[in-house]
Nucleic acid binder design. Sequence first.
DNA 1: TTACAGAGTTAGATAATGCTAACTTCGTAA
DNA 2: TTACGAAGTTAGCATTATCTAACTCTGTAA
Lengths: 228, 228
Amino acid sequence: MATPTVENYLKAMLALTRESGAVTISDLSTELGVSKPTANNMIRRLSERGLIHYQKYQPLRLTEQGRRQAALVVRKHRLTEMYLVKKMGFGWEEVHPIAEQIEHIDSPAFFEKMDQLLGSPNYDPHGSPIPDREGNLRGTDRERLGECQAGAVVVLAGLNDSSADFLRYLDEKGLRLGTLMKIEAIDAYDKSVRLSYGGKETTLPETTVQQLLVVKPSHDPSSGSATK
Amino acid sequence: MATPTVENYLKAMLALTRESGAVTISDLSTELGVSKPTANNMIRRLSERGLIHYQKYQPLRLTEQGRRQAALVVRKHRLTEMYLVKKMGFGWEEVHPIAEQIEHIDSPAFFEKMDQLLGSPNYDPHGSPIPDREGNLRGTDRERLGECQAGAVVVLAGLNDSSADFLRYLDEKGLRLGTLMKIEAIDAYDKSVRLSYGGKETTLPETTVQQLLVVKPSHDPSSGSATK
DNA sequence: TTACAGAGTTAGATAATGCTAACTTCGTAA
DNA sequence: TTACGAAGTTAGCATTATCTAACTCTGTAA
Ligand SMILES: [Mn+2]
Ligand SMILES: [Mn+2]
Ligand SMILES: [Mn+2]
Ligand SMILES: [Mn+2]
C-alpha cells in the first residue's frame, strides 16, 4: 500500500485544504519540512497514482480517492490518540508524536479493536472529529470562543491549536474539553475575554480565545471526548 | 536511530544465533526473505556501524552493542504481543504480525507504559522471555516435552514454534500456557506421547512434542504469562 | 589431492525519498 | 505595461534498500 511518507503527504494535503480545496506546493513543503523540489517530485508521483489532481503551476487538490485515503489515515491517528489517553493513561499533550507513528501501522484489526474498546468515539482527545470507516469527515458546528457574546455560557469542545505547549497552558488554567464556561466580559479594546468556570476566573488574550472552539451547553456534539 | 530494516536484521541475527554465536549470510537471507547480495550488502553497513563483526567469507556474529540493540527490539516486540493479548483481547495467534510493525515505533514512553500496565511481565503470550530494559535476555530452564519421562506431571510453559497454524492447533486441543499435563505413555516406536490434562486426553506426534516446552509444576518461571 | 557445488561476493541497475543550484513562470506593484 | 520577487520547476546528485547476473572462494567427496 502507501508508504508512511505517502500517507503523511496525503494527510498534510487534507489538513491544508481550505474551502477552495486548493493547496500550494510551498505550503506542503513547509508543513512537511521538506524542500520544494522534494514536494514537487512527490506530488507528481501522487498524481500518477491518481491521488492528486496536478497540472504544472496550478494549485493542488486531492482526488476523491486521495481525500478518502487521507481521511482514513486521520482516522487511525485520532483513534490512536484517544486510545492512548483513555486506555493507557497518557496526557493529551503527549499523544500526538506517538500517534504520528502508529497511524502508519497496517492492520485493520488493530484499529477496529481500538475503536471497539473505545466505544466508537466521534472525537479525539483534542476535540477533533474522527472520520468514519468510509473516510467521511463530519463537519461540526462549533464556534470560536472569540466570536461569542459577553454573557454567553458555553462548553469547550475543540481546539484550533493542539501543540503540546498550548495544551499544557490549558492544563495550567484548569481548562479541558467539556468545561462549562461563562463569558464574563470582553475587553472592548484588546478583545481579551474574562471567563469563569469551575469556581475559577481567568482572562485570556484574543490570540488564545481564537484557538478555543465551543458549543452551547447540553448541545453536546462531543460525546466520547468531552467527558473525562 | 536504526531504521525498521536495520532493526529487523539485528533481530534476525539474534534469532539465528546458536551456541556458537555464529550466523551465515544464507541463513539471514532466507530468514528475512531477501537475496544473498542484499543481505551481504546490509551486513557490511551494519559492520561499519559497529553492530556486527564481519570479515569476508567468515561467519557473522553480533557485537555486544548489536546484541543489546537486537534484544531491545525483541523486548518491544514481546511486550507488544503481551499487551495485545492481555489488554486488547487479541488471540495469541493474531498478535505476531502486528507486533512485527509496532516493535519499530520509536517511543520509550509508549513501551514503558505497556510494561507498567502489564506489571512488567517476564514472558510473552507464547512463553518466550522478555529481555529487560538493559537488553539482558534471561535463559530459562525448560525442557522439551519430548524429553520427559512417562508418568511425569508438567506444566506447558513455552513453544519452539509460534506459527499461527500451530497456535490454532493447540487451541483446538485445549492446550495453553499453564496447562498442567500428565504424560500417560510414550510410544516406544514412534515416540508419540499420550497426555491427559483438564479432563481431556490426547496423543501428540513426536514432531509436536518437540515444540512444547515444559517446567515442573509450581516451579513457575512463567509468571505473567502462564495464567490467563 | 583435486574439482565441484554451494556459499559468498562483485557489478550494475532500480525505486523511493531527499537535497542544492539554477532556471522559468506568474501575478502584481509601480 | 513591465519588471521584479515569489512560486514552481528542472537538473543533477546522494542514500537506503532492494534486485539479477556473473564471478570467486572454500570445504569436502571421491
Ligand atoms: Mn494529533
Ligand atoms: Mn505520520
Ligand atoms: Mn512474535
Ligand atoms: Mn519487524
